[in-house]
Nucleic acid binder design. Structure first.
Length: 603
RNA sequence: CGGGGCGUAGCGCAGCCGGGAAGCGCACCUGCCUUGGGAGCAGGGGGUCGGAGGUUCAAAUCCUCUCGCCCCGACCA
């Protein structure tokens, strides 16, 4: 329209006024936005209290601001990204047949007392009282509420299966919140709960969620892995964590280089390859090792490698005392040991108990003539002539051998996996990498339904407990993880699917009427086509605009400059590849639209 | 909860040791100038120095208490 006016150019201010009114009328879901009207406070300098890249960039790009420890305000740009992630989650949850509902964030204590978690949950549960001094808490998770709903509203097998989800603000009073949106106290979470008639159905629901999660994280542009995880206190038969690989992650993932085995370090098994040493058994000897307690001290004192030593750790459990043997260069995996022994309480023995069991001070325990059950790691099985404590002060034994000098009551896989260990599923080797847990799915079984009396009547009229599953996604954390994986020195590189805007139009000089007219024209055309576009109409120098453009990471940048405009061209720059293409001004909207849909095709 | 550190303008910091007029850079406002990678010049606004108490003629500075925040660890998933 503007172009038809030929050489006549209205004063820019008037034109803006006129075209903003027009834009308002054609605005589709607020597709377009003018930078001058957006609250988008970018920071040139690095915020002092940000540690990880995503946190720094989210602050610098004006997405979030901190209100208190672990509590953040999301500014418009941050909200737009959040909403993109939410939308992907909703689409995939709905596609998987789940239904959205919304539960309260303030929960009555009664429900929590009923499940027993009011006392178990600990300080992480934010407890509050109302004016009548009644106990409430701010929901950190919603198993109790959903189970309560289920027991009231679900009574027949005809209503099953059903999967209900919500996207709700949670609060967990973390001991130490850190890394911005990565580990906040208040955070947005998608949590879903499935109810089935039996185990089989529950496993089907679990599988559906597994697939939905895979689609969700793929669409968010994340490189991730689903790994076997420990069910921890939530319980249940199995669970997977969706881990985004990132060096700043707080979780450790063990995966096989050859096959698709992957597990959380807490759960990771080690292949039971027993390397039988072909050494001849030598004569058992006791050697004085005054003051040498640690593996490091003993091995350097005796001049042997840690692989030749066996650590004896005395452990106290609710079922009694056990001595655990692991190779000198290995560490006990407490979660695996706990699961193996079927116990929940586990702690290193104190000096008194050690003295009682070994008749020696800490640091000199050994398996020979030890007055406790001995459970040994598989790696110990093939060892010959190893070093252990002597169960006497300041002494160790060398040339210790299994069966000849002592007997292990049991062998088990109880150590932490480490880089290069054999894979439990194939002949490959294990790798260790850091990651961020963005999603976690659990098959719960009947733990909550039985505790809270949530049952249904089957076709034969028999009363059965609902079989449950629960499935979480940290929305803010997913967003942070995406930034953690997609950035460079200049700023964020948003994947198209979760970008706050698809295109940024950057007029190089906003005092140049021709440039501004072209930019406005492009803006209006794109908005009309439903493209989410940000027009940088600020009266800033080009350098400032370019820096901000890179920082906020809009996938496509349309630069309107004097030189190219003279030949009727504009420049499109792809943020991720830095690729630059020149297109004709009037073809730009079409090219842009095609580029966007090409980027989104897997959604 | 243990250890360490920091609270001074919107942001980043100096000043504190050795008490004596609250500063610097960026941002912000006005004007000029400039317009393809965070320009330049001139002028300007903005502070209960986290809070309370104490010492002193005088406290951002010294002392006591307190609150907040960050980092490491433990904890949690």
């Amino acid at each position: 329209m503007v172009r038809q006016r030929g050489t006549f150019a209205p004063p820019y201010q008037e034109m803006v006024k006129w075209s903003s009114q027009w834009a308002e009328s054609v605005r589709i879901e607020r597709a377009g936005m003018r930078y001058s009207q957006l609250l988008l406070p970018t920071l040139k300098e690095e915020p002092a209290d940000a540690e990880v890249v995503s946190h720094k960039l989210m602050l610098r790009a004006g997405m979030i601001r901190k209100l208190a420890a672990g509590i953040y305000t999301f500014l418009p740009l941050g909200v737009r990204v959040m909403q993109k992630v939410e939308r992907i989650i909703r689409e995939e949850m709905n596609r998987a047949g789940a239904q959205e509902l919304l539960m309260p964030c303030v929960l009555p204590a009664d429900l929590w007392k009923e499940s027993g978690r009011w006392d178990q949950y600990g300080r992480e549960l934010l407890r509050i009282k109302d004016r009548h001094e009644r106990d409430y808490c701010f929901g950190p998770t919603h198993e109790e509420v959903i189970t309560d709903l289920a027991r009231r509203e679900i009574s027949s097998y005809r209503q099953l299966p059903v999967n209900l989800y919500q996207i709700q603000t949670k609060f967990r009073d973390e001991v130490r919140p850190r890394f911005g949106a990565m580990r906040a106290r208040e955070f947005l979470m998608k949590d879903a709960y499935s109810f089935d008639v039996d185990e089989e159905g529950a496993e089907r629901s679990y599988r559906q969620m597994y697939d939905a999660y895979t689609r969700i994280f793929r669409r968010c542009g994340l490189q991730f892995r689903a790994v076997e995880a420990d069910t921890g206190l939530i319980g249940g038969s199995f669970s997977h964590e969706f881990m985004v690989l990132a060096d700043t992650g707080e979780d450790v993932t063990v995966s096989c280089a050859e096959c698709d085995y992957a597990a959380n370090l807490e759960r990771a098994e080690v292949g039971r390859v027993v390397e039988e040493s072909d050494e001849e058994m030598r004569e058992l000897e006791m050697i004085e090792t005054p003051g040498q307690r640690t593996v490091e001290e003993v091995t350097s004192f005796l001049g042997v490698l840690p692989e030749k030593l066996v650590k004896t750790i005395v452990i106290e459990t609710e079922k009694g005392v056990v001595a655990v043997l692991v190779r000198g260069d290995h560490e006990i995996n407490e979660a695996k040991l706990r699961r193996h022994l079927g116990i929940t309480q586990l702690q290193m023995a104190g000096d008194e108990l050690i003295a009682e069991v070994t008749h020696a001070p800490r640091g000199f325990a050994g398996p020979v003539k030890l007055e406790a059950d001995i459970i040994a790691d598989f790696a110990v099985k093939g060892m010959k002539n190893f070093v252990t404590g002597a169960n006497e002060p300041d002494a160790h034994m060398i040339n210790v051998n299994l069966d000849r000098d002592f007997e292990a009551d049991e062998f088990a896989d109880i150590r932490l996996a480490k880089e290069g260990d054999p894979c439990p599923r194939c002949p490959g080797k294990l790798q260790v990498s850091k990651g961020v847990e963005v999603g976690h799915i659990f098959k719960l079984g009947t733990k909550y339904s039985e505790a809270m009396g949530a049952s249904y009547l089957d076709a034969e009229g028999g009363e059965k407990p609902l079989v449950m599953g629960c499935y979480g996604i940290g929305v803010g954390r997913t967003m942070a993880a995406a930034i953690e994986q997609n950035h460079d020195d200049d700023g964020i590189i948003f994947p198209m699917s979760i970008a706050p805007f698809s295109v940024l139009i950057l007029p190089v000089n906003n005092k140049d009427t021709r440039i501004m007219r072209a930019a406005e024209d492009l803006y209006l055309t794109l908005v009309k086509n439903g493209v989410e576009v940000l027009l940088d109409d600020r009266d800033e120098r080009p350098g400032v605009k370019f820096k901000d453009a890179d920082l906020i990471g809009i996938p496509l940048r349309l630069t309107v400059g004097e030189k190219n405009l003279k030949t009727g061209m504009v420049e499109i720059k792809v943020r991720s590849s830095a690729e630059v293409i020149l297109v004709k001004l009037d073809e730009a909207p079409e090219v842009i639209t095609k580029m966007i849909s090409a980027e989104l095709k897997d959604g």
